[in-house]
């Protein structure tokens, strides 16, 4: 979340917006927003309705929580990127920004899921060289 906070301006500059979702109660999410100074909204799926409908529900942990997942949706809700992680790793925010900047409207079909590849690391390294020096290291 803090990592995405650091990239929020770049996401907005690319013409996109950012929303987070968890199964926490709204009061808890508000506490997280204030504690981490998050400039984007956090939605509350307390009944686990959306995470179940979207098949990103993990019932085995902490009373049932969301699996970490990132989507990029076009304005008509067409999925342009989907990445679901088993534990806690996720797509680096810098990669999301790069996709938004490049106007990658459709991912190549061979990449049904964004998985870490050599090219991901090269792109991350390139982005770190281009943008990273001025940004604090992402916190997790």
């Amino acid at each position: 979340m803090a990592e995405y906070r650091e990239h929020y301006k770049a996401i907005r500059a690319a013409g996109a917006s950012l929303v987070a979702v968890s199964v926490d109660a709204p009061e808890k999410s508000e506490a997280v927003r204030q504690q981490l100074r998050l400039p984007f909204p956090i939605l509350s799926d307390r009944e686990r309705r959306v995470v179940q409908e979207w098949d990103i529900y993990n019932p085995k942990e902490k009373g049932g929580i969301a699996r970490p997942a990132v989507f990029i949706l076009a304005p008509d809700r067409t999925v342009r990127l989907v990445s679901v992680d088993g534990v806690s790793a996720r797509v680096p925010a810098a990669d999301i920004v790069a996709m938004l900047r490049d106007h990658t409207d459709t991912m190549p079909t061979r990449r049904k899921r964004l998985i870490p590849t050599l090219s991901t690391f090269f792109r991350a390294a390139r982005n770190a060289l281009r943008f990273g020096a001025r940004q604090p290291k992402a916190q997790r």
């Binding site: 917006s17 950012l18 929303v19 979702v21 808890k28 989507f71």
Partner: peptide
Amino acid sequence: RRLSDLVAGGPLVLLFYRGYW
């Protein structure tokens, strides 16, 4: 907040996370 409203203005990065602990 409705997803279709949030996404209407441009691409939306939708982030699901594990929550507070």
